[in-house]
Structures are given as structure tokens and as C-alpha cells.
Amino acid sequence: MSHEASHDVAPHHDAPHYDAPHYVAARVQRALAADERTYELGIRVDIRGDQLFLRGEVECEERRHLVAAVAGETAPGLKVHNEVTVVEVRGPGEEETL
């Protein structure tokens, strides 16, 4: 296939399926993993209508806000619900005998 032909079939932003929620969610998840502000691999992304839901855990409040910021930039027009929580770390607890 020539370069021109390949270009002709490349997806456009107004293509009917390019913005299917399935692909938008995948793009957001990819951005969260690859954007240097986040590098978060374990965030679940769900889209329902114009609502985007983020779930998972991060280490601090600042990282929680960055996850929402990157998601919002990647999927403009969707309302982001940041349900990500900050991991609560307790003391070391009891030892286990093996």
C-alpha cells in the first residue's frame, strides 16, 4: 500500500467510530500510562454517555489531581468523575510466621 493510500484511510476526528466510548476510554488509559505527569498503569477508565469515571489508587493527593487533569485533556467534552483514592498506609502490623 502506498503512503498516499495509507493516508487516505487514516481515521479522522469526525469519523463515526473514532470517538466511540470504547476507544476514548482506551486513549485515556494509554495517556495515563504514558504521560510523564502521571505514569499510572492501574487506573480504570469507564465512559457512560458524556461522563468519564476514573477509579484506582495513587500514592498522594497531588497525583490524584494529575490523573484527573490528564484524563480531562485527553477526552475534552466529557465530565470527569475522579473516584481515584489515595492509598492509606498503616503501621507495619503483626509479623507472620512461615
Binding site: G42, E57, E59, V87, E88, V89, R90, G91, P92, G93, E94, E95, E96, T97, L98
Partner: peptide, 18 residues
Amino acid sequence: LPVLRRAYAVYSLGAEDP
């Protein structure tokens, strides 16, 4: 850490299991 949810786990090797 997100699994443990504690600063660290401690595993004792060679002790009598209580």
C-alpha cells in the same frame, strides 16, 4: 504497597508457628 496497605510486612523464617 497498595496490597499491603501497611508500611511493610514482616515474615518470620525458622520460628515455631504459634
